Amino acid sequence: MMTDIAELRRLIELNPWVTLMSAGPDGLVASHYAVLLDDTRDDLTIVGHVGKPDDAILGLGERELLVVVQGPHGYISPSWYGDVAAVPTWNFISAHLSGIPEILTAEENLMVLDRLVDRFERGMPHPRGMWERPNDEAFVQRLASGTVGFRLTPSRVVGKRKMSQNRSSDVVDTIIAGLEGTGVHTNEPLATEMRRARLRGVDA
């Protein structure tokens, strides 16, 4: 299990595209949206929005919501273990945040939408904020009215990180080299997470 709040916050910050799931009267339902850490808190509270009618489908604010955050993951070949009996596996880092979300006011939702745009525009050559021309207030307000903002302070958190911690340092080096190679399973983001996990001495 991964319980370090700072590591879980880092996971959410770097992997904002999440899966939202709930159990409705007709069975399980899922949606996919970007979320942000609540910038007024230092815990695992997240903020985001859904488009209508996903708020009703998910029972937003009424039923428990499960938010799945998926970090880098990938196939690990048994050939990287050397001449020993072995089977393939999959390395990954993920977190599940559960709780009943709070519905944001229209003003709070606008602030979250503004933050979301800025979060992803900031790396553009010419960032374009939500309020910049040719957008005007009427346009922004009309789009925002089709969304419902939420804040989730999870009542339960399950974080998992599987990075070949049970293997020797030499084998981990070989796996990282394989992930950084030019083969079919090249995966630099996973290699980076494996290096980080080893430097931090994590167990899970």
Rank of each mutant, 00 (worst) to 15 (best):
T19G: 06
P78H: 07
S98K: 15
G61Q: 06
D173W: 01
R41L: 02
K52M: 03
E180Q: 14
P125A: 09
L37R: 00
G51D: 06
E121R: 05
K162Y: 11
V29T: 14
S94K: 14
E180S: 09
V184S: 13
A144G: 03
E137S: 13
D39M: 05
L110K: 06
F120Y: 12
T3A: 09
P154V: 09
R161C: 05
E193V: 14
L65H: 01
G24D: 15
A138E: 15
M1S: 05
R161T: 01
M111A: 07
S155N: 10
V172R: 15
P127Y: 07
L143S: 11
G48N: 02
N135M: 15
P127V: 10
A191I: 10
M1L: 04
I5A: 10
G129M: 11
V202P: 02
H73Q: 14
E7K: 10
F150I: 06
T153P: 04
Y33G: 00
E121P: 04
L65Y: 01
M2P: 00
V47C: 01
I12P: 08
G183I: 12
D118V: 03
L152E: 11
A23H: 15
L143T: 11
N91R: 05
I93F: 02
I12H: 04
M124Y: 08
G51I: 01
V67R: 00
P134K: 08
N91I: 07
L152H: 08
G48W: 00
L110T: 11
H49C: 01
A177G: 12
G48M: 03
G24E: 14
P189G: 07
V172N: 08
T45F: 04
E102T: 15
G27Q: 12
P189E: 06
I175G: 05
A177L: 02
V171G: 03
H126E: 14
E137K: 13
A177M: 04
V171H: 04
E180I: 04
